[in-house]
Simulated scan of single mutants.
Amino acid sequence: MENEFNFNNELAGKIALVTGGSKGAGRAIAERLYMAGATVIITARNKPEDTPFHFISADLSVAKGTDKVVEEVISNYGRLDILVNSLGGSETPGGGFAALNDEDWEETIQTNLLAPVRLDRGFLPQMIERKSGVIIHIASIQGKLPLYDSTLPYAAAKAGLINYSKNLSNEVASKGVRVLTVSPGWIMTKSAERMMERIANSSKTTVQEATQSVMNALGGIPLGRPAKPEEVAELVGFLVSPRAGYLTGTEFVIDGGTIPTI
Rank of each mutant, 00 (worst) to 15 (best):
E193L: 10
N216T: 08
G89V: 12
L87T: 09
S22I: 01
K144V: 06
L113D: 08
L180C: 03
V182Y: 07
E106D: 04
A115H: 02
I56T: 14
I74W: 03
S86P: 01
M196A: 14
A156M: 05
G257N: 02
G122L: 02
A28S: 11
G176V: 08
T111F: 12
H54K: 12
S150A: 14
I221F: 11
D255S: 03
P153N: 08
V40W: 04
P93I: 15
Y154D: 02
V172N: 08
P184I: 05
M35V: 01
V40L: 00
R198I: 09
I262V: 14
S61M: 10
T51S: 15
R178N: 07
R243K: 15
E171S: 12
I259G: 01
F53L: 09
V172F: 10
R130S: 11
N85A: 10
R225E: 00
A217N: 11
A200D: 11
A244T: 11
S57C: 11
R118A: 01
L145D: 08
T250H: 07
S183N: 04
A155P: 00
G21N: 09
A63S: 15
L87I: 09
G89N: 10
D149N: 14
A227D: 00
R27A: 12
S61V: 14
M188N: 10
E71C: 06
F7D: 01
V73I: 07
F5Y: 14
V70D: 00
V214Q: 13
